[in-house]
Simulated scan of single mutants.
Amino acid sequence: MATIKQVCRHVRSKNAGPFWVTIDLFFDGPENYRRYADSSALGPELMQRLYGADPRLVRRYPVPKLHMVKISYARTSVQGGEVERDMHCGQQYVRLLDVELDV
């Protein structure tokens, strides 16, 4: 099985407002995009396990022209709140890099 870091040329995470986080997976070409963009491994259960996100509030947006998948989820605490550890969510993507993707 391939991992995200093996099939994506770029992975980033960022705020999507004070209540949401977005993760962008830029696949390294059309072949890997077609093969892995719909992987069940990238489902709401993964976001729940890695980030504590409510699976009902996970959204997935494929962007075929860019060979990219955007995954957004509701933050467990508001940006800048008392328990905030990554105000801009710029480091959240790291947990995904070793996730294995199914075909």
Rank of each mutant, 00 (worst) to 15 (best):
R59A: 06
D98F: 04
P30T: 15
Y61H: 13
L101F: 07
T3Y: 01
I4G: 08
L46N: 11
P44E: 05
A41T: 05
S72F: 02
Y51D: 09
T3H: 10
D102S: 00
P62S: 14
N15W: 03
D98M: 00
D102P: 10
V58Y: 00
T22Q: 13
Y51L: 04
A2Y: 12
D98L: 02
M87C: 13
A37P: 04
D98N: 03
A37Y: 12
N32K: 15
E82G: 14
L57I: 09
A41L: 05
F27I: 02
Q91E: 15
R12W: 08
T3V: 07
V103E: 09
F27T: 09
A53L: 13
G90C: 02
Y61A: 03
S40F: 11
A53M: 14
R56F: 15
T3M: 13
R85C: 08
L57T: 09
A74P: 02
D38M: 12
I23R: 05
V103P: 03
G80E: 07
R34I: 10
L66T: 09
H67L: 10
E82N: 14
E84W: 11
G81L: 03
D24T: 06
S77Y: 13
C8W: 02
I71V: 03
I4P: 05
D54G: 09
S77D: 13
V63I: 13
V78Q: 15
M1F: 14
G29E: 06
V21G: 07
I4L: 06
L42Y: 01
V11F: 07
Y33Q: 03
T22N: 12
Y36N: 00
G43D: 03
Q91Y: 14
S72M: 10
Y93Q: 07
T76S: 11
Q91R: 15
G81Q: 13
I4Y: 06
R12T: 04
R59H: 11
Q92S: 11
G17E: 03
P55T: 11
S13P: 04
K5H: 10
R95H: 12
Y73K: 11
M87E: 12
V21F: 03
F19S: 01
L25G: 10
S77R: 10
E84F: 02
I23E: 04
Y51K: 09
V94T: 14
D24G: 05
A16T: 02
Q92T: 08
F27M: 04
A53Q: 12
R56A: 15
T22L: 14
P62D: 15
E100V: 06
K65D: 15
M47G: 11
D102G: 07
K5V: 14
C89L: 11
V58L: 05
L46G: 11
V58F: 08
V21S: 00
T22I: 05
E82A: 15
